[in-house]
């Protein structure tokens, strides 16, 4: 019998329907609601008046919103880059450890992810503020005389994002590196390749799916997370997530908030489609394990 009919016998198409139905009701419908809202007008007291007008999208073109958008891209981009730079060597070390150690290391690295983010943010406040543990410790040891401004600024926001998303970056990168056939490295060494060549020509290209996935898993949520800029940034850094929150809550302008969400959605989908093209579809999904 042919392979296609065997596959279909083992995994009949009707198995797809529960998920499709669920997505249709709980994602597609809310998305439609969002799109309808994005064209609506704001009533006097913040209620939505259904309409079809582009005012909300036009509003987003104002310089202050563009500035916030660019800053969000910059901060999310910077923290993603730092995450990658830190996660890559970590994944390398873990992937090349003995299997038993690998398991323990992975669990230890991922464990913080399972605890409450809010509480951990407050813990960072204790560590970083001017009378906090880090500053007090450094002053006691004589390294500094005045406390360093470590909190309520962009530095703290990026640190918080890096801290939160590091495990998200490590997992896919590790999965990708772990699958690389070790014999390739042996062969390269036998042929006289140095570390840099091995890194450039073997390690980097083959771990690209992991890197792309890490970029997606870190960059996408960084743009819309608002807790970290609020708590660690002291509310002084307004990112896209804060802006959306603002529009929906204080400004009671659901139209503008929806338009902004739609724009972010489209932006990230475009990035994702580019990532798929760059790395090839199959490799991108192989890393999630």
């Amino acid at each position: 019998m042919s392979a296609i009919s065997l596959k279909q016998r083992l995994n009949p198409a009707w198995l797809l329907w529960p998920l499709c139905l669920w997505l249709g009701i709980f994602i597609i419908l809310p998305l439609c609601i969002l799109i309808v809202y994005s064209f609506s007008k704001r009533g006097t007291y913040g209620e939505l008046e259904l309409a079809f007008q582009f005012g909300n999208y036009a509003k987003l073109l104002q310089p202050v919103y563009l500035r916030i958008g660019i800053r969000s891209l910059y901060i999310a981009g910077l923290s993603t880059l730092l995450c990658l730079i830190l996660a890559f060597p970590i994944s390398l070390i873990v992937a090349f450890s003995k299997p038993r150690i690998q398991k323990i290391l992975l669990i230890a690295l991922v464990l913080p992810m399972w605890t409450n983010l809010l509480i951990r943010c407050y813990a960072w406040v204790y560590l970083l503020r001017s009378e906090g543990l880090l500053n007090s410790g450094l002053q006691m040891l004589g390294f500094i005389r005045e406390p360093l401004p470590l909190i309520y600024n962009s530095f703290a926001v990026i640190l918080g994002l890096l801290y939160n998303f590091l495990p998200f970056a490590i997992l896919p990168m590790y999965a990708s590196i772990e699958k690389i056939d070790r014999r390739l490295f042996e062969a390269a060494r036998d042929l006289g390749a140095g570390n840099w060549i091995i890194f450039k020509k073997i390690l980097l290209p083959l771990s690209l799916p992991g890197i792309s996935a890490a970029v997606l898993l870190v960059f996408v949520p960084s743009m819309s997370l608002y807790i970290i800029p609020d708590i660690l940034g002291g509310g002084k850094t307004m990112l896209l997530g804060n802006l959306i929150q603002n529009q929906f809550l204080s400004a009671r302008d659901w139209g503008a908030g929806s338009a902004l969400s739609v724009v972010i959605l489209l932006l990230i989908l475009v990035i994702w489609l580019l990532a798929m093209k760059v790395t090839g579809r199959k490799k991108l999904e192989e890393l999630f394990s």
Binding site: V64, L243, N246
Partner: peptide
């Protein structure tokens, strides 16, 4: 008011 707030915080 919201625009002003965004400009202050942004």
């Amino acid at each position: 008011w919201d625009l002003i707030w965004t400009e202050i915080k942004g």
